[in-house]
Every structure is written in structure tokens, then in C-alpha cells.
């Protein structure tokens, strides 16, 4: 297959970025999107055309959350429930123009080309996205039975990979789905209820402080989430947050 690639190039955080166009040919439809970029980079290196295109990637099986490209106007490209590394060229047509951009959000500054700094997500988690335990001295695992449907809901929320597609998809660059997923995961479990009120307050405050936007209920985040995290997690986040204003013990 043959493609015309328009790729965002930006030398570093301070430099001005621009689109650069590259033609690429002889791509197998079974090739993954990132492997296609590998092939491009190989050529850029061999023919001394330009510095290879920088893009974050690691596990290449859709679980580490490292990769994230904005492809033809969609985070992770034109398929549902996948990360960029799981996108394959068979999803494109021969001869297509492909526009490749980094995540764009104030809270995710660009490092180089398509690589952005997502440490804001870590900072939100550090603000309270955990259950406070120290190693040892905990009860037997089966001493806290948890209804299966609750455990399953918690698992679904916990499957967030922290890639940032929700922020990239949102016109307000809101992190509500990311924060909602973590708040839900922990609030749904009895172990997590004790700190629930404090947790939600601290995480939301940190989210606001770091420059993420507000949620205006368009749910682009849900549509683009590679792990299909549901918007109900945002509702739960809101309920948790409101309840936290009225006292520590009220958990919805």
C-alpha cells in the first residue's frame, strides 16, 4: 500500500512545530501503524532525509499506555477500542493521506515531534489515587468478600491505561474520564471507601490545578477510550465529589 504522511515535526518544547510531508510505499496491510512509522524512520535514517520521527511506544500490545497519536483527527486512529499500536494499515485505503499529530492539551506539553509529557496524570494519582496501605499487616484476602458485579465494575474502571486519549479527544482537554475511572475503581470497593471523600477532593483539586479543562458532557472521551471506559464513571466522580462536600462518611 502507498500513503502520503503529514507528520507534526517539532524539535523540542520551545521550538515552533510544523507539518512535514513524506511519501511511503510498499506497506503491507498486516503492518501495524507503528511498524509503518518504523519503516519510515529506517528510510529517513538510511537516506539522511531528516532526524527520525520521535513517537512514544513500548509494549506494542495495547496495555502500557505509552503510545498515543492523533491520526486523521482521532486519538488512536480510525478504529474502536484500540491503542495506536493496535491499529493496522488494513484499516486505511491505498493512496490515503494520513495526518499524524501529538496529543494537544495545555497539560501535556510537547517534548519532541509526537512525544508529549503526561506526568500530569501521575501527579493526579499521587494526590490520592490509591488506597493507603503499608506493606504487611493486612487482613487475609478472603476476609473481605466483594459482590461479583461490584468487583467486575471496579475491574472495568481499573482497566484505564493512562494513555491520555480522553484528554486529547475532549475539546476542553478535560481529564474527567481518567480521574473518574480511578475514583470509581477505588470507591466501588469496600477497601477504598474509607478514604473516598478525601481522595476525590484531592484528585479533582489537582486536576484543576494542572490546567485540565472542565467536562461539558460531549463524551468524546468515551468514544475514543481504547479500553472502553464508560462515561458513568464521570457521573460517579461527580456524585462522589458532591457527597464529599457534605461530610466524610457519605459515599454514593
Amino acid at each position: 500500500m502507498r500513503f502520503t504522511l503529514h507528520i507534526w515535526r517539532q524539535e523540542n518544547a520551545r521550538a515552533k512545530g510544523h507539518f512535514e510531508t513524506y511519501e511511503i510505499d510498499n506497506i503491507s496491510p498486516d503492518c501495524s501503524f507503528l511498524e509503518m512509522l518504523d519503516i519510515l524512520n529506517e528510510r529517513l535514517i538510511n537516506d539522511r532525509i531528516a532526524h527520525p520521527v520521535c513517537f512514544d511506544n513500548d509494549c506494542r500490545e495495547g496495555i502500557c499506555g505509552m503510545c498515543g497519536l492523533y491520526i486523521n483527527g482521532r486519538p488512536h486512529g480510525n478504529d474502536d477500542g484500540i491503542t495506536t499500536c493496535q491499529l493496522h494499515m488494513r484499516k486505511f485505503h491505498d493512496g490515503d493521506d494520513i495526518w499524524i499529530e501529538p496529543w494537544r492539551a495545555k497539560a501535556f506539553p510537547i517534548i519532541r515531534d509526537l512525544v508529549v509529557d503526561r506526568s500530569a496524570f501521575d501527579k493526579i494519582i499521587q494526590a490520592g489515587g490509591y488506597i493507603s496501605t503499608t506493606t504487611g499487616g493486612v487482613p487475609d484476602a478472603n476476609s473481605i468478600p466483594i459482590p461479583k458485579h461490584k468487583a467486575d465494575m471496579a475491574m472495568d474502571a481499573a482497566s484505564c491505561i493512562g494513555c491520555g486519549a480522553c484528554v486529547a479527544a475532549c475539546k476542553n482537554a478535560s481529564a474527567m474520564l481518567f480521574v473518574g475511572a480511578k475514583v470509581s475503581h477505588l470507591a466501588l470497593l469496600p477497601q477504598g471507601k474509607i478514604e473516598a471523600a478525601d481522595r476525590v477532593k484531592r484528585m479533582v483539586a489537582k486536576m484543576d490545578e494542572l490546567g485540565f479543562g472542565n467536562c461539558t458532557n460531549t463524551y468524546a472521551c468515551e468514544a475514543e477510550c481504547p479500553k472502553l471506559i464508560k462515561r458513568q464513571n464521570i457521573s460517579r466522580l461527580n456524585r462522589q465529589w458532591i457527597a464529599s462536600l457534605f461530610g466524610r462518611d457519605r459515599n454514593s
Binding site: Y130, I131, T133, T135, G136, V138, P139, D140, A141, N142, I144, P145, I146, P147, K148, A151, D152, A154, M155, A158, H185, L186, L189, Q191, G192
Partner: peptide
């Protein structure tokens, strides 16, 4: 035990046990 205390959502059966 440690992981469950941290909130790791292990699979459970219908009685709520692991």
C-alpha cells in the same frame, strides 16, 4: 493479601470470594 488491601480487583466468584 497485600494486593487485595490495595484494591486490586481480582476475579471473584458469585459468593464474593476470590
Amino acid at each position: 493479601d497485600q494486593c487485595v488491601a490495595q484494591g486490586v480487583p481480582f476475579a471473584r466468584d458469585y459468593g464474593g470470594l476470590l
